[in-house]
Simulated scan of single mutants.
Amino acid sequence: MHTLIVEDDVVMQELLTTLLRGLDSRMHVHCAETIAAGLSLWQKHPIDLLLCDLNLPNQETGLTLVKAIRAKDSELPIIMITGRGDRAAVTDSARYKVNEFIVKPFDPIAVMARIKQHLVAANSSVDIEQSDLNLEAFVADTDDLLTRLNFMPGAEIALTTITQPEPPSARELAQQWQNDMAITARLIRLANSSLMRRSGGALTTLREAIASVGVDMALTQMLALSLADTSRLQHSTLQNLAKTFADESQKLAEYAALLAKQLKLNIANCYTAGLMVRLGDCAVLEAIQLFIDSGGNVTDDDISSTVKKYAAQYGNQLKIKWRLPLALRERIGAAYSAGEGKVNPELLLMRLAACIAAGDDNSAEQEKLCRQLRLAPSDLPGPTNRDSPETTQP
Rank of each mutant, 00 (worst) to 15 (best):
V215L: 07
L347D: 10
L159Q: 15
S93C: 15
E75A: 14
R198S: 14
A358P: 01
I332V: 12
A182T: 11
Y314K: 05
R148N: 13
N269L: 12
E367P: 01
R189A: 15
D143E: 13
K321R: 13
A312G: 08
L326S: 14
I47R: 05
I102K: 03
V29E: 01
I332S: 02
A257S: 10
N385Y: 04
T161Q: 15
C370I: 00
M152K: 10
Q117N: 08
P46R: 04
L56V: 01
Q313R: 14
A311Y: 12
Y255C: 01
I102C: 01
E330K: 13
P57D: 03
N316K: 13
V11F: 06
E7A: 02
E248I: 00
Q59L: 06
D229G: 07
P389W: 05
P168W: 08
P383D: 03
L50P: 05
L279W: 07
M217T: 11
V11N: 08
E129Q: 08
R87F: 09
P108F: 00
E100I: 01
K319M: 15
E340D: 09
I157T: 15
A68M: 11
Y96D: 06
S93P: 06
Q130L: 06
Q175I: 07
F291Q: 01
R70I: 03
D8N: 13
L187C: 13
D281H: 13
E390N: 14
L203W: 08
L145W: 06
G214Q: 03
G214W: 06
D86M: 04
D302N: 13
A68H: 14
K342Q: 14
E156V: 07
G22V: 05
G154D: 08
E346W: 05
Q372K: 11
W177Y: 15
I267D: 02
L65V: 02
K319P: 05
